[in-house]
Design a protein around this nucleic acid. Structure first.
Length: 360
DNA sequence: TCTGGGGTCCTAGGACCC
DNA sequence: TCTGGGGTCCTAGGACCC
């Protein structure tokens, strides 16, 4: 049998709110709510995240700001400051990089670290995790929660097991016992829809899921998802920790001041969004082949319209004009009022470093 | 109670090519 | 009258994650 892998999942605690607490120590101990205002005036918008004081009052990510204010009138409400969080995130990732063989940044506040080559057993892994936590605390001033396990799936669930400032280790032999009592929603990849359908089948825990016949899961959820559910419920996951570079897509989305089906109003929004997307592309020296117009109607249904160019482009005009043409075509097809619109580019291509025959 | 914004991955049908 | 199979790309939509 090959040596088991040892993988860390590092999850920053209530990240955006903790960043704000670091910048403004007087916030500590108070409920803090980080908001995305829609721009429609008043408290229209949603909660992005909140600290534990606010969570205790029922204020969680995703709820409307107006509702959060009713639940916690005394809380401090702040707008997201993405640049700040991103620069702090860079510091965290830089610190982690020093400790692992491979670092996979999963999002602005989470990462997987492969440390199989850095430690010889779980005891050493624990010491390393403690050291990482201390360094992030000392150098950056933030707490995190870490899960240590033989694969990514279990490491991620483990990092979520004890929070905030937690550390959870799962031996290869303990994986099954660790997973069995957990709710199916704790399984990353099981969201609202899958959770509801499993509930209808009488499945509430990961242990119960692991007892379902694979054939039945495949019949219910299709080949890939069914087989995955069976494996995941047993704590099996063979996916590798990998440094991923190339982003797949870059997009911007915005809420319109009013619901509208008017092409001219939408054009103004598209122009702005296109410029933002263009700036991000430019910063990363990327070209693109596909442009997508994203339309979210008043009933919150998401529809898209995509055009793929015959050759890659990298200019603002192409994004803006194609985006507008797609919007025009969309409105001709659908008689709906739109609440939000977005522009996205995909099929990204590195401007430089394109492979040429000369390289060989 | 009234709902942000940034992503990833998967599916399925159709076009097109060999 | 009966008429393959495989691969890849494109589009649209859905589920999920933070």
């Amino acid at each position: 049998m090959p040596n088991p892998r040892i993988i860390l999942h590092v999850d920053m605690d209530y990240f955006f709110a903790q960043c704000e607490e670091r910048e403004h120590p007087e916030l500590k101990g108070k409920p803090v709510v980080i908001c995305v205002y829609s721009g429609r005036g008043g408290d229209s918008g949603a909660v992005s995240t909140s600290n534990y004081e606010a969570r205790r009052l029922g204020v969680k990510a995703g709820i409307p700001i107006s509702r959060a204010k009713k639940l916690a009138p005394e809380a401090v409400f702040l707008s997201v400051k993405m640049e700040l969080y991103r620069s702090i995130s860079d510091e965290v990732m830089e610190t982690l990089r020093g400790y692992c063989d491979v670092l996979e940044k999963e999002s602005v506040d989470e990462a997987f670290c492969e440390i199989t080559g850095k430690v010889s057993d779980l005891e050493e892994a624990k010491l390393l995790a403690v050291k990482i936590k201390e360094e992030i605390k000392q150098k950056i001033g933030l707490t995190c929660s870490i899960g240590v396990a033989p694969n990514k799936l279990v490491a991620k669930i483990a990092s979520d097991f004890q929070k905030p400032d937690g550390l959870t280790l799962v031996n290869p032999e303990e994986v099954t016992q660790f997973m069995a009592p957990l709710k199916i929603a704790d399984l990353t990849g099981v969201g609202k829809k899958t959770g509801e359908r499993l509930n209808e089948l009488g499945v509430k825990t990961i242990g119960e899921l692991s007892e379902m016949p694979a054939e039945e899961l495949i019949r219910e959820f299709g080949k890939a998802k069914g087989a995955w559910l069976k494996q995941a419920s047993q704590g099996m996951d063979y996916s590798e920790v990998e440094e991923r570079e190339g982003t797949e897509q870059i997009g911007r989305i915005t809420t319109l001041k009013q619901d509208t089906g008017e092409l001219n109003t939408i054009r103004t929004a598209i122009n702005q969004l296109s410029e933002d997307v263009y700036r991000k592309l430019e910063a990363r020296k990327l070209g693109f082949k596909s442009i997508t117009f994203v339309a979210i109607s008043t009933d919150f249904k998401i529809r898209t319209k995509t055009h793929t160019l015959s050759a890659p482009a990298k200019d603002l005009e192409t994004i803006r004009n194609t985006g507008f043409e797609l919007a025009r075509a969309f409105l001709a097809e659908h008689l709906v009022l739109l609440r939000r619109v977005g522009v996205r580019v995909s099929n990204l291509i590195e401007e430089k470093g394109q492979k040429t025959l000369g390289e060989f």
